[in-house]
């Protein structure tokens, strides 16, 4: 053990000074370290005499009273903050709720209004879309035609132009246009 490590050890153990066998042996051999140890030992003794008067019961009661007051005040503040935040939070929620409700109802009205003012759906069928009403109408028309031709004594597809004269036929061929109804 050298003097430097001995002195370092003394300062680290200051307050509870003790020596092991190796350190005691070094102390016997080194007068400088012996003096250092004695000085620190004396200082330790002096400092240990500085005792403070412990906290009295009256003083502790004062601390406790102030602490209770501070804690109660702090808790009241926390509660009032919670209440305020609850009230304002509920108010904000109600405003938001009303806003979204009005937004939603406005949206719904908009859809209804748009639908009610649109032309019939059939006008908007694309070429590749299937229209059931068209098929129904065609069948209905054919049914009506069959009834009509049967009631009048001729079948559909009969040529009714056979009774015309050749001049009349020529006139028609020269003057009729596609789409004319006879």
């Amino acid at each position: 053990m050298n003097c430097e490590s001995f002195k370092k050890m003394i300062s680290e153990r200051f307050g509870n000074l003790y020596l092991d066998e190796m350190e005691k042996k070094h102390l016997e051999e080194c007068s400088e370290c012996r003096q250092h140890y004695e000085e620190y030992g004396s200082l330790e003794e002096s400092l240990k005499q500085s005792e403070i008067t412990p906290l009295g019961s009256v003083e502790f009661a004062m601390i406790q009273q102030t602490l209770d007051n501070n804690i109660n005040r702090y808790q009241m503040k926390a509660i009032s903050f919670y209440r305020l935040s609850t009230h304002y939070g509920a108010g904000a929620f109600a405003v938001l709720f009303l806003f979204f409700v009005s937004l939603w109802s406005g949206f719904q009205y908009g859809v209804y209004y748009t639908e009610s003012t649109q032309p019939a759906e059939s006008y908007y069928l694309a070429d590749n879309e299937y229209d059931e009403s068209e098929e129904y109408d065609q069948q209905y028309i054919e049914l009506l035609l069959n009834d009509y031709t049967k009631n009048n004594g001729f079948n559909s597809g009969d040529l009714l132009l056979d009774e015309l004269t050749a001049d009349e036929m020529e006139y028609l061929q020269n003057n009729l246009e596609v789409g004319d109804i006879l």
Binding site: L55, E59, M62, I63, L67, N70, I71, Y74
Partner: peptide, 14 residues
Amino acid sequence: ALDLTQETFFAAFR
């Protein structure tokens, strides 16, 4: 020291 002791415990509570 009394004040600081009280403040220490109050800060600990908080």
